[in-house]
Nucleic acid binder design. Structure first.
Lengths: 247, 247
DNA sequence: CGGACAATTGATCTACCTCAAAATTGGTGG
DNA sequence: CCACCAATTTTGAGGTAGATCAATTGTCCG
């Protein structure tokens, strides 16, 4: 059963886990022999929906995704943004009913892994279980930081903070460097992630541009003044709990 | 080693876990023989602080606690509210540096359990590990719902939503009933949890009172119109992932 | 080249904030 | 039991960050 592309996809998972914990050869082998099914989705496609009871998790190989909730008259809150290497619905392993939806933000390549196989894996290897658990805990840490933003930071600070976060997360998986990173999402998406209006996001971006803090063109974010951005948002990367990762 | 009161405290943990999963006699025994140290704290005392590297977790036996972050000029965001049966810093088992603080909101009785013992426990009993993991996942689900509130709900809806949540959580552990529950925290605390100002919270409460939705006296919340509160906040309890718990 | 979507701008509005003071409550000691 | 203090709650007046509504412009892509 030659699954060359899928094997490659799992090596992404191996790398991810190795950034958290040490893997024995046996553990590495077990991960690499997980059954996976890769699929490419267009932008803005739901992957799992609020209320679903999924039987698999999805590893992002390429592209961006987000978790979100809809309320009332078409209001949307984006809960988290996910990039290559993330498993945004890992929680569904232990929480059977989805309390939110998961969708692509861009065209994306996803690897689906059955819950069953993951359950076997974590039962056999407590070290892997701990690494996965930790992963969901870092997820929660990011939720907390976003809560602080929405509850207590101005729009300006919030946007600056998100840019710092995204840059560091992308850098950690080798997708950014030199204070420049992809940002392939619309201002409406940004607004929904920040609890703002797209109009207001636009005005704040204009202001930042005017101050020479950042530029934003053709889906690329260039941070002209990293220190300024850090200061403006009182950014402290501790909550990302990034360990030195191999790029 | 007669530790009568502490043994009692662990039975609270047993009950909690049994609401999530089935425990074998051996597992129950292992939990009940965890070493614990109970302590009583006054209101508004820090339990763990942002930046700390704790070596124990704390189980709330009685009273209320909250997790919070401070930013800028004395701004505080409360991230979660915790009641008896909760282990608010369970995440510290796998995330070594605290990215927020934990404090009492009222006088509270806490049982401290060493990380070491918990690590041994979850290594020996994968079922218990899964139950703890799930606990932290429900935690994250509550964070997500609060994010939706702060990002997309009005002050009125947010307050109504929080009241629904607290009532159900208290009821689930037998601390509330008949649409009446303790609410032993100040309006400043409420405001910091909701991303609002105490002044504004006060005005919205007045409005709710005027509509006969709720009354709030001597640290007790009485929900006069449960359905009205549900409607006003578009409350859907799914995210609490409450399983039927023995009271 | 046309069509759809995204970014930008203008004008106006309002939910919630800020500052400040007064009223109420609950706990404490005499 | 009362008087007093500190912490809360409540109310008032005025200000502002960000929302809303409605065009207009720019961009990408088939």
């Amino acid at each position: 059963m030659p699954w060359a592309p899928d094997d490659h996809s799992l090596s992404m998972l191996v790398r991810r886990l190795e950034s958290i914990t040490h893997l024995s050869d046996e553990e590495r082998q077990a991960i690499l022999s997980l059954p996976v099914k890769a699929r490419v989705l267009k932008a803005n496609q739901d992957i799992v929906r609020d209320g679903d009871k999924p039987s698999q998790c999805c590893l992002i190989l390429d592209g961006w995704a987000c978790r979100y909730k809809l309320i009332g008259e078409g209001k949307r809150q984006i809960l988290s943004i996910h990039i290559a290497g993330d498993i945004p619905d890992l929680q569904s392993l232990h929480i059977h009913t989805m309390d939110h939806s998961l969708a692509t933000l861009t065209e994306a390549t996803l690897a689906f892994i059955p819950h069953e196989s993951l359950h076997e894996l974590v039962l056999r290897f407590p070290g892997i279980a701990a690494a996965f658990w930790r992963d969901t805990l870092v997820d929660a840490a990011v939720f907390r930081e976003w809560m602080v933003g929405m509850g207590r930071r101005s729009a300006y600070e919030r946007i600056a903070h998100l840019f710092c976060e995204l840059y560091l997360r992308l850098e950690a998986v080798g997708l950014a460097g030199e204070h420049r990173c992809p940002l392939p999402i619309t201002q409406v998406d940004l607004a929904d992630a920040l609890g703002l209006t797209n109009v207001h996001v636009n005005r704040v971006l204009k202001e930042m541009r005017g101050q020479g803090l950042v530029t934003l063109r053709s889906n690329t974010l260039v941070i002209e003044k990293w220190d300024g951005l850090i200061q403006a948002s009182e950014f402290d990367p501790t909550y990302l709990h990034l360990t030195k990762r191999a790029a």
